[in-house]
């Protein structure tokens, strides 16, 4: 059985003139076809650099030292050439960022940018074909008046609308893996909730595997099938979402869970910002699927 993504003993450190900073200390993470997996952690935990390694971006930074294997569709991203890695991005794997408005180029129309995306997979796609597929993709993400949106510039659309466009673009080339780094965090809560629901529906329909990176446990619980909790460059707990949320076991996960304010009004918990217990060994719930 081959996974879409299989990360084994991934380590990362940054070298500067004077010192070496270890950021990831041996990450193991697996995503099966069509599976929605969340990587949850606080700022500085290493979740975003993990995404940049999977995208093959960090390997091209001179100060970054990456070891271990990152198998994507059976190919090790770490050993591919720069060109091969670039060819994967936007075709076999795609990405959705935190702020949709800044990840779209303000000087080109949505239609122009969408065409560029489609051309990455099919360089000789005809104009008419392209337009047809853009419209179809925008209708799928429930955008009213898709033709008008195609001829608009990103700043003419709302944040929520841009986020929908981003989702449509990210899925247009039928990628086998979608990386979503804190999607919608820059948006209002109600818009964020809607776009997450939409994204959930879309990736389920397309059977796209997702690595969902977030600091928000509630959002993770509603989106993911399986969860990895990352703390200071180590996976501390992982398992199916329901099992992990029903029975958080690692001290760090428990503290994180306790610290989230509840709408049931259970009060503010006394949790430490740090405890030696947070460095306890990894806990895994059940067998990976």
């Amino acid at each position: 059985m081959s996974s879409v993504l299989n990360i084994n003993n991934l380590t990362l450190s940054f070298k500067t003139l004077m010192q070496r900073v270890d950021v990831l200390h041996g990450i193991d993470l697996r995503i099966e076809a069509g599976e929605k997996v969340a990587l949850v952690g606080e700022s500085g935990s290493g979740k975003s650099v993990t995404a940049r390694i999977i995208l093959g971006l960090l390997q091209e930074t001179r100060s970054a030292v990456v070891h271990g294997s990152v198998l994507f569709d059976g190919k090790d991203i770490n050993t591919l050439t720069r060109k091969e890695r670039a060819a994967l991005r936007g075709t076999a794997m795609s990405m959705i960022f935190q702020d949709p408005s800044s990840s779209l180029n303000p000087v080109f129309t949505i239609g122009h940018q969408f065409t560029e995306v489609l051309k990455r997979r099919e360089a000789k796609i005809s104009q008419a074909d392209c337009k047809k597929r853009c419209l179809k993709a925008l209708i799928e993400v429930a955008i009213p008046e898709p033709a008008r949106v195609l001829s608009s510039y990103p700043f003419q659309l709302s944040g929520g609308m841009n986020q929908r466009v981003m989702i449509a673009m990210a899925l247009a080339n039928q990628p086998s893996l979608l990386l979503a780094d804190e999607p919608g965090t820059a948006l209002d809560v109600s818009v964020q909730a809607q776009t997450l629901k939409l994204m959930h529906k879309m990736v389920t329909n397309h059977n796209t595997a997702v690595l969902f990176i977030s600091h928000n446990l509630g959002v993770v619980r509603e989106f993911a099938d399986r969860v990895y909790v990352i703390y200071r460059g180590n996976i501390v707990e992982d398992g199916p979402t329901a099992a992990l949320f029903a029975n958080p076991t690692h001290p760090y996960t428990r503290a994180l869970m306790a610290a989230v304010p509840r709408i049931t009004g259970t009060g503010l918990p006394q949790v430490p910002e740090f405890s030696d217990e947070f460095l306890a060994p990894r806990v895994s719930h059940g067998v990976n699927p």
Binding site: S190, L217, F245, M257, R262, T264
Partner: peptide
């Protein structure tokens, strides 16, 4: 309130 992400079943 409907948009609040929740973490447990009572919520």
């Amino acid at each position: 309130i409907g948009a609040v992400p929740v973490v447990d079943d009572t919520e």
